[in-house]
Nucleic acid binder design. Sequence first.
DNA 1: TTCAGTGAGTTCCATTATGGAACTTTGTAA
DNA 2: TTACAAAGTTCCATAATGGAACTCACTGAA
Lengths: 169, 169
Amino acid sequence: MERKKFSGSPCPIARSLDVLGDWWNPLILRECLYGNSRFDELQSWLGISRNILTRRLAELVEAELLSKQAYQEKPARFEYVLTEKGHDACLVLLALMPFGERWYFKKGQHPIELRDRETGELVKPLVIDANTGKPLDSKTLVPCPGPGFKAPKSIKERRFSEYYDSLVE
Amino acid sequence: MERKKFSGSPCPIARSLDVLGDWWNPLILRECLYGNSRFDELQSWLGISRNILTRRLAELVEAELLSKQAYQEKPARFEYVLTEKGHDACLVLLALMPFGERWYFKKGQHPIELRDRETGELVKPLVIDANTGKPLDSKTLVPCPGPGFKAPKSIKERRFSEYYDSLVE
DNA sequence: TTCAGTGAGTTCCATTATGGAACTTTGTAA
DNA sequence: TTACAAAGTTCCATAATGGAACTCACTGAA
């Protein structure tokens, strides 16, 4: 069976997972961000099988997170460059860093960290609520119908009115 | 072949992808965050096959993102509750929202949005650099050896010194 | 007391996807 | 003329996925 796709989903999380919900694609993006953006580099750094890498790169180019660019002709050689959309996706990867550091490494013992290329200053990704400026707390959230919400008939949507009710109450 | 695992990786992103690098696990967490945390609820909301759901829930409990709790006995009935680690992982999901909204929906036409349960105020996830307070820009970052860095011999690590050099230069 | 219904899974199966390894292709450098 | 490199392909055995049907424990109604 083919992997289930979420291209029709009304949820931005689900939609994003079509391309980011996988273990190789995020790592490929990470390497491109780090500057290892050629086929053989990606292959040996990640330890990914070459045939899979070929497929994933095609996916990422198709999804417009990467663009395939020749860095020389004769012989033709390529590199995969992050697009604007790709850079945007990298923010999600970066949100994984504090999670990984906190739960998989002893405090202060993570082997990698990020710095600003210019200043050399440490960079600590943090997810906040842009409206209040405060760190986001997932415990206080409720999903609600947004401006593009269209009420349909499946159970999935029946529930949305419940969310809505709970808000209006 | 079994899916490749990253439990030995020095990268917090890779480590996190062992459990989050997949399309169902994040969606299951999303549903638990939204309050749909029982087997049949998850199954019908997500449209996931029951056998897969069973496996994924076991994984998430094993990874301590969810805990399985009986909400009644006789007959035994369970719900899957987000742990602290699970809530932490939700922040990553929430970072997917602005990405998904921006790239998969017309501006201002996303069907779902988040609100604070108490105040009803809109919540907009945003990834910033905790040190400067400014929105994170992935184009300016360099990966560097962290405090727990141990230099080994594989090509993977050879490159780290390059990162390091480029910083020191 | 029997019977349909519910929640929480299992079992079975055909189809895909994954990972490992070997093999191409095109062009360059010795 | 031979060795080497980059960027893929091809082939294969094994695993994972998704769909559907089945189980099991209990309950509330007839």
